[in-house]
Simulated assay, not measured.
Amino acid sequence: MEMRLFHQRELAQLIHDIEQNIETYRNGDFNFISEDETLSFALPDSVSIDLDMLQPILDYKAKDQSPANRAASDAKFSSILYKSITGLEPSIARDPRLWNYLSHTIFLNYVRNRYPIPQETEKAIKEIKAHFFCTDEKRSIERNNGVSRLWWMAYVVSRVDELGLDDALKAFLTKTDVRANIFERPTTSQNVNVLTGILKALHQSLSEDSILFERHIFREFMREINLWGGMILIGDLDQEDIDSKLLKIKDKVIKN
């Protein structure tokens, strides 16, 4: 299927109409969006999405489950979505009109099941804005929108060559606090070698005792990495040196 982006005027209208459309977000559909091509425009043919690969996401039904159970699918679905989209460059993936369109069309049922809409009107509007819509702010694109977050999480860890995508995502997404700490620190999310070392340490811990996933330990682990990164030029180090240092930091915070 081709990939499409909203025209800005149509997107603005949809945002304006959130309150009157709350029940549609809960139980209805926005079929008019995909049926009327004047509301959007297509990306080049080189960018496409494989609907057959997406079927597990499109069939997702977990609205009545706990937040933890709903989140348990994130690693699997992030991998599926990333692999199903061909030719999408990060520069295009930064455009919120793409994800706003997808959230209201083929992924509508997934988003409403992954992020159930509260009954109270003000809370419902807030949730809809956060998960069905997307702004050009990094937090909105990478963490909040129900669809874009899946692609961006996979993109971030796909740069780690020493772990397969599925293993990297499992380490990255096992705990929300782990993901947030990595995303919010430029030293780790932007430096591929440091990110590689962290994910390898997490992957190892996951196969052993999972102690690195304990909140206070991981936060101290990240704090020590940032302190170390502030003292040296990490970019000049080999992967082997970074891995060795991170293992020493891990042993230090666990012992303390």
Rank of each mutant, 00 (worst) to 15 (best):
R112I: 00
Y101A: 04
T105V: 01
E122W: 00
L173I: 03
P96Q: 09
N181I: 01
T121Y: 02
K123M: 07
Q190I: 02
E122T: 00
D177V: 10
L81N: 00
A68T: 07
L150E: 02
L169T: 00
D167A: 11
V192Y: 09
K76C: 08
L81D: 05
D161A: 15
E127N: 14
F77Q: 06
S78G: 14
N144W: 11
R139A: 12
P118K: 06
L163G: 09
N100Y: 05
D167R: 11
G164C: 11
I92W: 07
F133Y: 08
R179E: 13
L195E: 06
Y115I: 01
E120K: 08
S78I: 02
P90K: 13
K138Q: 13
F77L: 10
R149P: 02
I182G: 02
A171F: 07
P96E: 10
W151K: 05
K170H: 12
V192C: 12
L98N: 01
K175P: 03
I85Q: 11
W99I: 01
S158W: 05
I117T: 02
N145A: 06
L165T: 06
I125F: 05
R114W: 05
N144Q: 14
R185Q: 14
G146Y: 03
P186Y: 09
S79Y: 09
A168T: 11
A75S: 15
Y82I: 05
V178A: 06
I117F: 01
T105N: 10
G197I: 04
T174E: 15
L108H: 12
Y101R: 06
P116K: 04
S140Y: 01
M153K: 14
A93G: 10
S78K: 03
D167Y: 09
G164D: 15
G197Y: 07
P116F: 01
T135V: 02
K126P: 02
T176Y: 14
T188S: 11
E127T: 09
W151V: 02
I125R: 01
F107T: 05
A72D: 03
L81W: 06
Y110W: 10
S91E: 14
M153V: 06
S79A: 15
R143G: 01
N109V: 01
K83T: 08
V111C: 04
V192N: 15
N144S: 11
E142V: 04
V178N: 04
L165E: 13
T196D: 13
I80N: 02
T121K: 12
R114S: 01
V157W: 07
K126H: 11
